[in-house]
Design a protein around this nucleic acid. Sequence first.
DNA 1: CAAATACATTCAAATATTATTATATAATGA
DNA 2: TCATTATATAATAATATTTGAATGTATTTG
Lengths: 124, 124
Amino acid sequence: MLSTGKKIELLKVIAHPVRIKILEELLEGVKCVSDLEEFLEISQPNVSQHLSLLRTHGLIDFYVDGRLKCYFLVDPIIPDILEILQKNYQGTLPAPACCPMTKKGTYPGNRNRQKNSVRECDIT
Amino acid sequence: MLSTGKKIELLKVIAHPVRIKILEELLEGVKCVSDLEEFLEISQPNVSQHLSLLRTHGLIDFYVDGRLKCYFLVDPIIPDILEILQKNYQGTLPAPACCPMTKKGTYPGNRNRQKNSVRECDIT
DNA sequence: CAAATACATTCAAATATTATTATATAATGA
DNA sequence: TCATTATATAATAATATTTGAATGTATTTG
């Protein structure tokens, strides 16, 4: 299994608007470079460069059909990332249990804080 | 709801080893800067810089307790990303239905390919 | 009020990423 | 074989990211 470090690297590679579009397109099925070039509306060398980066990181691969290179998805992390990008997040995470917002106390750590700061969360 | 573009930007901000560690730490609960500094073993200004970046992107926020700044998670995209980083992916995605690997044909698009390339996937 | 603590900001240097341009290669078709 | 099509690579220039060093501000404590 991949280390967290490697996964962060993958995340970094994925986090680019053009590459996300490529991956979304490949999620639909196999695509050759020229089809991607048309779809993305960027130069062919640039498409190849992005494909190359995705490939050297093991995210995608290709097979050859005549003079076409047919790219497809390999890494199972991709659908999960793309799903997050589609997901409709609303609101925020719940405020921390122990803070002035929830009126339940202040910092739960051991650092110095103001003398009169009461930690109701400790008192229970 | 956030646009895909904004989410890609968030992904880019998140995809950094130090910032991932910060987010993982904050997932456990509120943390002040000095505690993060100790944990991360990087300089205090650098911690502040990363926190600032995370905050300007709306991923985290803080409350003040005396001289402490207590940071906490805000954006609900964070737990989802962190979950992916923990997940144990194995194997690869299934090979495309229509390619030499699966022996079911070649490129499904409309580009020129070699004359004798048969598309069994079209024939059904 | 002075010192100490907690944190932020600014600037510069080092490094990494991105896109462009030009050129190369390999396969196909005339 | 020659032109065309499909793609890759290399070099460069522009830009962005990252870190370190120095300095600044606010709060608390003695």
